[in-house]
Computed example of a mutant assay.
Amino acid sequence: MKSARKARVTVSLKPGVLDPQGRAIQHALEGLGFGQVSDVRVGKVIELDVAEGTTEEQVAEMARKLLANTVIENFKVELA
C-alpha cells in the first residue's frame, strides 16, 4: 500500500440492547462514589490504515460485513 489514510469506525450498541459491560461499569462507578452517572454504554473504536482513494462507502461495507454486528450494533465511519 503506497499512500495511506486513516479510517475510524465507531461501533455502539443499538438503543434497547442490553449492555452488561456498561451496567458493570456504572455499578463500579457508583461504588466509587460517582452516583451522578445514570447510564453507561460501551462501544469500540476501530482504526484502519486504508489506501488513498478508499471511499467512506467502502469502509462502511467493511463494517457491515465484519466490524459490526448490524443486528445489535450501529456504526459510524470517519475518514481523515
Rank of each mutant, 00 (worst) to 15 (best):
V45I: 14
V45Y: 02
I46H: 01
I46M: 09
I46S: 01
E47L: 06
L48Q: 04
L48V: 08
D49F: 12
D49I: 13
D49N: 15
D49P: 09
V50N: 04
V50R: 01
V50F: 02
A51P: 14
E52S: 13
E52K: 15
G53Q: 12
G53P: 02
G53S: 09
T54S: 11
T55W: 06
E56Q: 14
E56R: 15
E56M: 08
E57S: 12
E57D: 14
E57L: 12
Q58C: 05
V59L: 10
A60F: 03
E61Q: 14
M62I: 12
A63W: 00
K65A: 12
K65T: 13
K65I: 09
K65C: 07
L66A: 03
L66Y: 01
L67E: 01
L67D: 00
A68R: 02
A68H: 00
A68N: 01
N69Q: 11
T70Y: 03
T70F: 03
T70K: 06
V71T: 13
V71Q: 12
V71L: 14
I72E: 08
I72G: 07
E73I: 09
E73K: 11
N74S: 07
F75G: 05
F75E: 01
K76D: 05
V77C: 01
V77L: 00
V77H: 00
V77D: 00
V77R: 00
E78C: 08
E78V: 13
E78F: 05
E78Y: 04
E78P: 06
A80R: 12
A80W: 07
